[in-house]
Each structure stands twice: as structure tokens, then as C-alpha cells.
């Protein structure tokens, strides 16, 4: 069961709904620890001062920032002074149409669950959830997590409220900054080619089935880890990747037609 990482209230108007927040994701990555290859001992990380090479314990660590050449040192408490007073409140500022939001702005997904099982709490939660489900709108507010304030989007998903932290608009790079993105009349596509490409896309189309994809690298690593039982390990034969042609197709139309024929036969 995912652990609660935040408790507080989500409020709209004068209605405050006590909630707790859990991550919507599970970390299934295989995490390694560092080992000294010569002895097999674990490696630990030590913080030392660059000035005198002395070890510095965790409670002696502060946050340093260089302001116009002046070194400024803040404690965590001082930094939290920058956090708005209401650190346990998500105040809904407005409701928007989520299809208007650039998905690149969504950062990390969380779930908001009722803060307790008392009737008052579950009633208020269900009312907000049902009203949001009915209108299909996404609520925009802000949430403070780990002494950082984030913009947040909340919507109904699978009978609970899902919250996504968001990046600010100025944290999303504008496509126009990238010269390598072909634009303008010089690269205008030809209608016949686009039609052929659409035919190819349709021929290669399926319904989205997220459970149809597995993390193959995770699987490969797990197999490697299991295969080392009682053995010193497989021979580490690294095969060279096949060189891939990065030549642009000489005849785009021919390549589209050929692909379409294969997609239809395969």
C-alpha cells in the first residue's frame, strides 16, 4: 500500500476537504548499491569539506547560494520561511478544461484520498469527486511538498481524485527555440505524401493497451541477477550493435508505399 506523503485539505470556496496524498506511481526499478570491487564491501558516501577535508555530519550541512559573488548560507528552517503559510492546504483557484493543458507541464502524478473514514470527511470528499467527475473539469491550485511550492492539477480518475504537480509555463521550452524543427514553406509537406503517410499510420494502428508493454530492461536485469545464483556469472560478451543506416530515404513516396504494403501483409 502506498504510503502517505502529505496530509492536509483541498478547499474549494468555503468547503475544505481533509485529504491525504500518496504517489500514483510505484518504483519498480532495480536499485543497486555501490560495492568496492576489490573486497565486495559496501561503499558509503561521505561528505567532506573542500576546505579542510574534514567529514561533515548531516546536521552541520546548510544550503549555500552564491549571490553576486557573496556566499549566502541558509538553514532549512530559514528556507522554509519562503514557503507560504498554509503548507497543508490546496486551494482551488479555478477549474479548467484539461484538454487545454500541454501534457508536458504535468510533472509527477499523485492521488488524493479521503483524510479519514469519518462521515463528514467522506461526504465532503465524495461530493467534490462526484461534482468534478460530472463537470469533467480539472481544478488548478498549488501544493507545498518538501518545502517547494508546486502548481497542481486535480481531476477525477478511477473514483478518486488524482493530482499532478505541474511545471510552470516558463519551464517548458518553446519549439521555436529549436532550429532543427523544420518549419515554414521551405519544408511544407506534399499532399500526396501526407495521404500516403496517413494510410500507413492507419494500417499500423491499434487501440492503446498500456498493459501490453513491459519494461524489457527491468526484465533483462532481473534475469541477469537470478542467473548469477551459485555461479560466478555469465561471460560478459558484449555484442556490437548493428550499424544503422542514417541515410534519409532517397524516395520518400516509395518508402511509404513499401511500408504500407508490409504493414498490410504483416
Amino acid at each position: 500500500m502506498p504510503s502517505t506523503i502529505w496530509t492536509g485539505t483541498i478547499s474549494f470556496g468555503l468547503v475544505a476537504v481533509p485529504v491525504r496524498m500518496v504517489s500514483a506511481t510505484r518504483d519498480l526499478d532495480i536499485h543497486f548499491h555501490q560495492v568496492d570491487g576489490r573486497t565486495g564491501d559496501r561503499v558509503s558516501n561521505r561528505r567532506i569539506s573542500e576546505l579542510d577535508s574534514k567529514e561533515v555530519s548531516w546536521d552541520e550541512i546548510g544550503r549555500g547560494y552564491e549571490l553576486d559573488g557573496q556566499a549566502v548560507v541558509l538553514t532549512d528552517d530559514e528556507l522554509s520561511a519562503a514557503v507560504p503559510e498554509r503548507t497543508h492546504m490546496i486551494e482551488i483557484e479555478e477549474f479548467v478544461d484539461s484538454s487545454e493543458i500541454d501534457p508536458a507541464q504535468f510533472d509527477h502524478p499523485y492521488l488524493l484520498l479521503p483524510g479519514s473514514d469519518t462521515e463528514g470527511v467522506t461526504r465532503a470528499y465524495r461530493l467534490l469527486r462526484d461534482a468534478m467527475a460530472k463537470t469533467g473539469r480539472t481544478a488548478i491550485g498549488r501544493v507545498v511538498l518538501r518545502s517547494n511550492e508546486y502548481l497542481a492539477a486535480v481531476h477525477e480518475r478511477d473514483d478518486v481524485l488524482a493530482l499532478s504537480t505541474m511545471l510552470y509555463a516558463d519551464e517548458i521550452r518553446d519549439t521555436a527555440e529549436i532550429d532543427a524543427v523544420p518549419s515554414g514553406d521551405a519544408w511544407a509537406s506534399k499532399r500526396g505524401e501526407v495521404t500516403a503517410a496517413i494510410e500507413l499510420i492507419e494500417a499500423m494502428s491499434v487501440d492503446f493497451d498500456p498493459s501490453g508493454y513491459e519494461d524489457r530492461d527491468r526484465q533483462r536485469l532481473l534475469e541477469l541477477i537470478q542467473s548469477k545464483r551459485g555461479r560466478k556469472g555469465k561471460d560478459a560478451a558484449v555484442s556490437e550493435p548493428e550499424p544503422q543506416s542514417s541515410e534519409p530515404p532517397p524516395d520518400l513516396m516509395a518508402a511509404l508505399r513499401e511500408s504500407l504494403a508490409r504493414a498490410r501483409n504483416g
Binding site: 561521505r46 561528505r47 567532506i48 569539506s49 576546505l51 561533515v56 546548510g62 548560507v73
Partner: peptide
């Protein structure tokens, strides 16, 4: 990361 007492930079 710095040392609170004197602002010395920390390396790992």
C-alpha cells in the same frame, strides 16, 4: 551543500 559553520563547500 555547504558547512553551516563557515560556508565551506562540501564534496562527496
Amino acid at each position: 551543500e555547504v558547512r553551516l559553520s563557515d560556508g565551506a563547500k562540501i564534496k562527496h
